[in-house]
Amino acid sequence: MDIVQPGLLYTLAMFALVIGILVFIHEMGHYLAGRMFGVKAESFSIGFGKELFGWTDRQGTRWKLSALPLGGYVKFVGDMNVSSQPSPEMAAIPAAERRHIFAFKPLWQRAIIVAAGPITNFVFAIGVFAAFIAIYGHMFTPPVVSSVEPNSAAAEAGIQKGDRVIELGGRDIDRFEDLIQVVTIHAGMPLDATIERGGQRLEMTVVPKIDLMRDRFGNEFERGLLGVRGARPVIAERSGFDILYYAVDDTILLTRSIIDTLIQVITGRRSVKELGGPLKIAQFSGQQATMGLPNFVHFMALISINLGFINLLPVPMLDGGHLFLYAIEGIRRRPLHPKVQEWAFMSGFALLISLMLFLTFNDLASFGVFEHLAGLLG
Rank of each mutant, 00 (worst) to 15 (best):
T290R: 09
K280I: 13
V74M: 03
P316K: 11
D174W: 14
I263Q: 06
S84G: 03
P316S: 06
I3G: 01
I305P: 02
A193V: 15
A33P: 03
P94V: 03
D174A: 11
G78E: 11
N295M: 05
I3N: 11
S43M: 09
A350N: 08
S347T: 15
E371W: 02
I119H: 01
R334W: 06
Q181V: 01
T141D: 12
E196I: 12
F129W: 12
F140W: 10
R223A: 14
E196Y: 13
T251R: 05
L32D: 02
E89Q: 14
G162F: 13
S45K: 02
F299D: 07
D249S: 14
E156A: 12
S257N: 08
V207K: 14
T194Y: 06
E274L: 06
G49F: 04
Y246S: 06
G348E: 01
L225I: 03
A131G: 05
G268K: 09
F241N: 04
S354H: 00
M213H: 13
Q264N: 09
L336F: 14
M300A: 11
M80K: 09
A131T: 12
I243R: 07
P86Y: 10
Q181H: 10
T141E: 15
E149L: 14
F44M: 04
L68G: 01
V207F: 08
A327F: 11
Q181R: 07
P6A: 09
V123N: 00
G34C: 05
I195M: 09
T11V: 08
G276K: 12
L22P: 04
V148L: 15
F284R: 04
P142N: 10
P190V: 14
F44G: 03
L65C: 02
L325Q: 00
R269Y: 14
M317D: 06
I243M: 11
R62V: 03
S271H: 10
G137C: 14
P335R: 05
R171A: 11
Q59K: 12
Q59E: 13
L9F: 14
S87N: 06
G227W: 00
R62N: 14
I195L: 13
I126T: 02
L307Q: 00
V74P: 01
M80R: 03
L191H: 10
D319M: 02
G127I: 10
F129L: 07
T360H: 00
V82F: 02
L312P: 05
V265S: 06
G127T: 01
G162C: 09
F48M: 06
F37G: 03
F37K: 01
F24S: 08
E329Y: 06
G276Q: 05
K64E: 15
W63Y: 12
R35D: 07
V4Q: 12
M28F: 15
G375M: 09
L191V: 09
V228G: 10
H30Y: 04
K209W: 11
T251L: 13
K273G: 14
V206R: 10
F241K: 06
G378V: 05
G330D: 13
H322L: 09
E42G: 07
T267L: 12
A134T: 00
I263M: 11
I180W: 07
G277H: 12
